[in-house]
Design a binder for these strands. Structure first.
Length: 561
RNA sequence: UGGCCUAUGGUGUAAUUGGCAACACAGCUGGUUUUGGUCCAGUCGUUCUAGGUUCGAGUCCUAGUAGGCCAACCA
């Protein structure tokens, strides 16, 4: 896995700097800290690749830590899904941790803070506290309970823990600075009362620690050296450091929080609320719908872990606002699938071709390469017969020289088979072409080595024998949103940009080698794109999802005309 | 009205820390090709503005401008 010396991102520079200043390499440790309240999406994938990538680069452990301090929203179901997604991406965590593992330690530390006069129990309503908080430009004012005695605070906090109070009646606050220009330092809440069962600690606790109090201390407990998070937590750093100061022992590693800009992908949304809305309103079929930017959606769409990792690697990491074009993600999946996906033939919009000089009732099995770029992929046999399907768009009665496909009087190569010539076609009452009559050159069989087989014919078409064709449901996906940044319009709701044609379900006719395709198998339908077998596939019915189309220069030429 | 962060081609990220602005994607032009795919070659185009320091500035200083974030008992 030795890569050419790659440019370091700014976080790697920070690590390098720390190493240079004497931080022991063996003490490097990272973590990926999801809250188990939803499914992971492509943005999380970047963060996962960043943290686990750092672990790989420095041979340092990376913990998977669930930030589970809010029992109201968190569920075991999400823990399981997150673990599956991280593993699928190809990463191994050192240990699986939960912030809830540290509830007792956090409580003990909170008691110490109270005893030092650094925390107090406030007994006001949230509205009252909000009013005292001030604004970014005006300082806050002190709570009337700010100067409670240590004894009183101890007693009340103990009672909070014992479940003697209703939710919302008391909180524990850090006593910092109500006049700080950083609103987060204006006596932030450390604990609230929640009479809710937790997915791991059940009803052991009825007070739960807040994010700021929990996260840094959890990093400290795990001796995480570099705690990386997104930019919106930049202002939290001061508080992170303040909380750390309360418990820090110089003989231990002091975690360092650094922030990076979240990666934004074009033509999609990732917020839980918005994704949920797409699911609830039936715009998509579920969290793993192949149009969703969730890891499970991408997996079902046919994306590979390699493609996602390469994508994350290419887009890098920085601190500025960004909108990464989804075409870059598509490039990476094509790049990987081009190497690993076997080629097959399938016709998605069929028109029948009758080869009039091919003996009726005859059939033959022709040899086809599984991957022209990889000889080790081997070959397979495909059946040929008198009646075949080709794509409607591959035939025109008349066309100019730029049209490399089949036209009356013109010749094309049938991939892996013969050269055919279009002689005539028949139409229905509305003038739609219903059948094309061709003749074939019997000596032009692919690979036969004959002079005729070596003839240069400009166009090559994919095809499938009518009588051998396998019918399959094919789901053609397009981007979910027509706007590149659907949720950043001040005057318009993101739902207004939903692409009404993001899914088309059609029947495809496939070569019979696909009969035993397994769920998640990925193939290239030649000249069309990459497809994968959907989990809805049954023994009676094959279902394919379109992952991404091939680069289509022809479509571009037509568009420009 | 305050604080914090950011600004490099159409997009994303680099630049040996003050020394020839590079890589990938996208675009365009050719070549190869039994996939209008892949592959190969070429090409296009950039340091927010104005001052300053310096032999030399994307990098340092000053002042602007633009964008993002900050007042949940969410994370």
């Amino acid at each position: 896995m030795s890569e050419a010396p790659k440019a370091l991102n700014f976080l790697e520079h920070i690590v390098e700097e720390d190493l240079k200043n004497g931080f022991p390499k063996e003490q490097l440790r990272f973590r990926f800290p999801p809250e188990p309240n939803g499914y992971l999406h492509i943005g999380h994938a970047s963060s996962i690749c960043l943290n686990f990538g750092l672990g790989l680069r420095y041979n340092a452990p990376v913990n998977l830590r669930f930030d589970d301090t809010n029992p109201v929203k968190e569920e075991q179901e999400f823990v399981d899904a997150i673990k599956k997604d991280v593993q699928w991406l190809g990463y191994k965590w050192d240990t699986e941790r939960y912030a809830s593992d540290y509830f007792q330690q956090l409580y003990d530390w909170a008691v110490i803070l109270i005893k030092k006069g650094r925390a107090y129990v406030d007994s006001q309503t949230s509205q009252e506290m909000a009013a005292q908080k001030g604004t970014p430009t005006e300082p806050g004012t002190s709570s009337p309970f700010r100067e409670r005695t240590v004894e009183e605070n101890m007693q009340l906090f103990q009672a909070m823990k014992n479940g003697d109070f209703e939710e919302g009646t008391h909180v524990l606050r850090a006593k910092i600075d109500m006049a700080s220009s950083n609103m987060l330092m204006r006596d932030p809440i450390m604990y609230r009362i929640l009479h809710k069962a937790h997915h791991r600690t059940n009803t052991d606790w009825c007070i739960y620690p807040m994010y700021d109090w929990t996260h840094g201390e959890s990093d400290y407990i795990e001796q995480v050296s570099h705690s990386l998070c997104t930019l919106e937590f930049a202002m939290h750093r001061e508080l992170y450091d303040w909380f750390l100061d309360q418990v820090y022992d110089v003989k231990t590693v002091r975690p360092k929080q650094r922030e990076f800009a979240r990666r934004n992908l074009s033509h999609t949304v990732v917020s839980k609320r918005k994704l949920l809305k797409l699911v609830e309103e039936g715009i998509v079929a579920g969290w793993d719908d192949p149009r969703m930017p969730t890891i499970s959606g991408l997996r079902r769409r046919g994306y590979t872990p390699e493609a996602i990792r390469n994508f994350a690697d290419t887009i890098g990491i920085a601190k500025r606002e960004n909108l990464i074009d989804v075409s870059l993600l598509e490039f990476h999946v094509r790049e990987h699938l081009n190497k690993v996906a076997p080629r097959v033939m399938g016709v998605l919009d069929p028109i029948k071709v009758v080869i009039t000089n091919y003996p009726e009732g005859d059939e033959e099995w022709l040899t086809a390469e599984n991957n022209p770029g990889d000889e080790s992929a081997g070959t397979r046999q495909v059946p040929f017969s008198r009646e075949i399907y080709i794509e409607k768009s591959d035939f025109k009665e008349e066309a100019n020289r730029k049209f490399f496909r089949l036209k009356l009087g013109g010749e094309v190569r049938l991939k892996n088979a013969y050269i055919i010539k279009a002689e005539s076609c028949t139409k229905d009452a509305e003038g739609n072409i219903t059948e094309i009559q061709c003749t074939y050159d019997a000596k032009s069989k692919s690979g036969s080595g004959t002079e005729e087989s070596l003839r240069k014919v400009k166009g090559t078409l994919h095809w499938v024998s009518v009588k051998h064709a396998l019918k399959a449901e094919v789901r053609i996906y397009d981007r979910l949103f027509l706007d590149e940044s659907p949720d950043t319009h001040k005057d318009k709701d993101f739902m207004e940009f939903v692409n009404p044609d993001s899914l088309k379900i059609i029947t495809g006719y496939l070569e019979p080698s696909l009969k035993n395709a397994k769920v998640e198998d990925r193939v290239q339908f030649q000249r069309l794109g990459y497809f994968c077998v959907d989990q809805d596939t049954t023994t009676e019915k094959l279902v394919f999802n379109k992952t991404v189309g091939l680069r289509d220069t022809w479509a571009k030429i037509q568009q420009n005309n």
